[in-house]
Design a protein around this nucleic acid. Sequence first.
DNA 1: CGATGACATGACACCGATGACATAAAGCAT
DNA 2: ATGCTTTATGTCATCGGTGTCATGTCATCG
Lengths: 360, 360
Amino acid sequence: MSTIYDVAKAAGVSPKTVSRVLNGDAPVGKKTRTAVEKAMAELSYVPSNAARMMRSNKSGVIGLITGAISFAADEAVPNGLPDLFIVQGIQKVIAAQNKTLMIADTGGSSDAVPNLMRTFLQHRVEGLIYVADYHREVSLPVDGVDCPVVLVNCFDATSTPSVVPDDREGQRALVTKIIQSGHRRIGFLTLDRAMTAEGLRYKGYRDALESQGIPYSDELVAMAYGLGGEETSEALDASLGRLLDLPEPPTVICCGNDAIAMRVYGLLRARGVKVPEQMSVAGFDDYRVISEMIHPPLTTVVLPYHEMGRRAAERLLSLVDGADDVQENPVRVAGPVSWRSSVTPLNDVSIFNPNGRKRP
Amino acid sequence: MSTIYDVAKAAGVSPKTVSRVLNGDAPVGKKTRTAVEKAMAELSYVPSNAARMMRSNKSGVIGLITGAISFAADEAVPNGLPDLFIVQGIQKVIAAQNKTLMIADTGGSSDAVPNLMRTFLQHRVEGLIYVADYHREVSLPVDGVDCPVVLVNCFDATSTPSVVPDDREGQRALVTKIIQSGHRRIGFLTLDRAMTAEGLRYKGYRDALESQGIPYSDELVAMAYGLGGEETSEALDASLGRLLDLPEPPTVICCGNDAIAMRVYGLLRARGVKVPEQMSVAGFDDYRVISEMIHPPLTTVVLPYHEMGRRAAERLLSLVDGADDVQENPVRVAGPVSWRSSVTPLNDVSIFNPNGRKRP
DNA sequence: CGATGACATGACACCGATGACATAAAGCAT
DNA sequence: ATGCTTTATGTCATCGGTGTCATGTCATCG
């Protein structure tokens, strides 16, 4: 691999002049410049980041860590997939600033994190981003880390700058739209209590009811449990059954996420209830493999992963540049409602329909 | 950030001795060693990779590129997700060798690739891995790249070392098992012709029929088209209808992948055909979000992404170490069949059942 | 016309590690 | 005791760039 000295010799100039051509930090004569550029091309010269960094002390590298942290068990949840979009959003911003993103994946074991941190420090990263696979609280071992850190899709107890999805606002927007399309009895199958998103989405659900003047009723809310396989399928079915057997059953069921909605599709069919003719269903996440592929396509709320990544990267870069962090702390990013055909408007029913279910 | 000189001064030794403690490449006195280690800890010293690399010319960095290459349009396919498992497999191997993985995502635009390559070269990566989002042919701009390159989930025309899934063997194994469970009329809804996997899986299907002594019949094979949304849904339904309306319809339908299988579930139900009581269904990919979550859980073939990543990383590392590449070129990795309840055994039918459909 | 500044270029030290080599002390066989 | 190996440590140059400063060459202006 050729060096700046080789180029200098080939072009008949000093190394420093080559450096100037590379960085454009001082004027260079036209003839000299072309000679240098020719030499660089002929030798297929690529400057060494290592050498460059030694002098300038700027690595131009941003570190990113994904995967499970602070979770002992490797959950069966099909996790870690959508956060790829977050990474893409980050990458786009970082690359636009001519910096390099160095990504490390913990592969699900939080033991790996300190090691990864060390590696990043060895590379003298200018900033660190941690991406969680779903919205939750984490606790990072940030001892000895002296560069800015931004959390994405998670937050911690020490107010580290973070960017999270606005679950509450998303759910509120969805339920509001559902109400505006005529529904009055809105069932809600919640996520597991342990999940951060659960509480927020529940609040959003209530926000929407309140602002639209619909009384909240506990009987319309049931726990869907996690995402587990067969074992918890009965639990979900039981919750669903409870909603359907109400004297005034819901006309629409909002599910804690798209995966639950997909299971609800199956369970409703098993009970002979047609979606969406007899029961509307909505999800959350806009996990497109599900929402676009199931029939009917699912009305849901977009988790704005790409945008979150963008915002996080911008926030980090401004911190790296020494700017004060002026934003409110968890930056909340709301995603739009993705309205598809799994929710049927009930607009022909101007007031509450005591019958509960719409007939086609 | 403290340097090796700071540590040396604090410990009252020469920098070189500190270096020796770090690398363990020469004996160090016990007392000296502890003094140095104490100093390192107190100053929270982390060696600079850049400086280290300048001298030794070993970066310890492996570059990885993911995303679309040589594809102009950004397809609607929910792509780019499962390759995360490949990356995890790679990461595990790389980390075990105390090397660092530097990941760059093209974000779907192949224009970005040359830039990413340049960045990697600046970092003097010791090897490069390219991961495609699904099995296919690519053409990488490897001009000027003088380090080993390994392709994963793809291959090129110039016999670059690569690791791909063994679609043919996987499909063969699945269909063989299906036959062994009693089925004789096996429908096959193929992927789009443009996909590499299509031809291979089709061959595997025929391999299985042949080895089990079941005659191949064109009428049992139909095109499912891609993964598109509503527009192609009718096309899929038409293909499905053609199979169902055969004088001797299949007892099981093998789908080109899990997403198609999921759609087939819906279309079968719409036609009043119960899965798996009246029709068995199988997929391919073991895309777990689908295969585990739909009802009934889907029998499918695992795409061994993790293992592919592992193999690719090992192959690359041996190339980096200067070993000759002795493997047959596209290394094919077969995944196991994931047998779930969407395929019902027809073992009670000892010979071909002219009626075609099993009754519960 | 000489002073002034803008432009163009080079000389040289330095960033932080390590390889090559030197040196000193200790251990050991003869 | 002498010579030789082994162990423990230090000196110094070097990797490939860039910051600092110096120098040389013009065009411009009073």
